[in-house]
Amino acid sequence: MDPRFLNISNVSIRFAPRAPNVLQSVSLDVARGEFVAIIGHSGCGKSTLLNIVAGLLQATGGGVVLDGREVDEPGPDRAVVFQNHSLLPWLTCRENVRLAVDQVFSRSKSRAERARWVDETLALVRMEHAADKKPGEISGGMKQRIGIARALAMQPKVLLLDEPFGALDALTRAHLQDQVMQIHARLGTTVLMITHDVDEAVLLSDRIVMMTNGPEAEIGEILTVDLPRPRDRLALAQDPRFLAARAGVMEFLYARHRNPADAA
């Protein structure tokens, strides 16, 4: 297992020449197949970090290397699921997924193979029944599932989730978290997920990266979640290791690095 499959080294970024750095020397190594959550208060720059990995933003200093190749532009080896507006509204769900599949596998798979692959991925998130609907006709949770299906369909080296369940109700969120865990277990995808939900971070990830408040945000602490998989949310609710990890993150976020908006 390559411990430096995704290598973020000394990444700094600022949005204007004289402005302070939003991120200050962020370094993080993610192993192949690892599930890493990044947590922090709003405005700490966690989405900025994800966008740098995605290639949508260019770091001012430092760089990102994925599987031996430096990241300098967006590409299908790093699939992103955004919090919302991930789907193109004028295409059906199937067409949204097919767009990505055609883009990535136009040479390596035949037309029929690609069509079958699209259906398989839709089945993976159990969305075959809504395949021919437009995004405007389905619920927010379903849209996120299609977004995840599209990301997985590209067979990316790393899956980047930017608060993917942030806009969903608690029940739908739990349901999708379970689905993501199953998919991760089955495909062994490397995942980098932004979240502001402590339970979600502990439940899903192998490591939790806690960010300090911006500007000049940096990694404050990294917590290894030493819980066996598969994980069951009901059983974990009583598990002392789960509670300890949860308490550790809470302590970081609410005692040592309180939200600047509350502190004032």
């Binding site: 290639g55 949508l56 532009e73 790093r78 699939a79 992103v80 507006h85 990535v104």
Partner: peptide, 14 residues
């Protein structure tokens, strides 16, 4: 056109 659509498309390698 919303920049988000372009971001989505660019991450697909458009």
């Amino acid at each position: 056109v919303s920049g988000a659509y372009y971001d989505v498309a660019r991450t697909l390698g458009a």
